[in-house]
Amino acid sequence: MTDVAKRVIDAGLNLLDRQIIDKDGMMSGNVDDLELTVPEEGGPPVITAILAGPGALARRLGARSGAWLESLHVRLHPSEQPGPARIAFGVVKRVADHVEITVSRSDLDVSRFEKWVRKHVIGKIPGARA
């Protein structure tokens, strides 16, 4: 994809399900959904954030499996009303075959959820390493 092509994208084709790569080259999840914001002064919406993780994917899966994934996400997430992990589009560096971001994966909400599950769920299973 050339620079000119990146000026115009079909979001479903060029952005959705792309791998997110952090500033250290580590995989940091997928683009599961997008947050669009309609400007206060009106006009067309603008992409303001990438939504990632089970909280974002659930809505795309359809009725039964989506509801199951969302309830699992809510049950396991440390927050009382967890939304999807949000990555502000302002930290996106490049959109190509993958999406490069300028921050570390450890600073992302999607990583915090993983860490919580590792500590409180996986870590409690007998035989799990600390």
Partner: peptide, 9 residues
């Protein structure tokens, strides 16, 4: 819709 957010999905 001004000022609101929409999910692409």
């Amino acid at each position: 819709l001004a000022g609101t957010q929409i999910r692409f999905s």
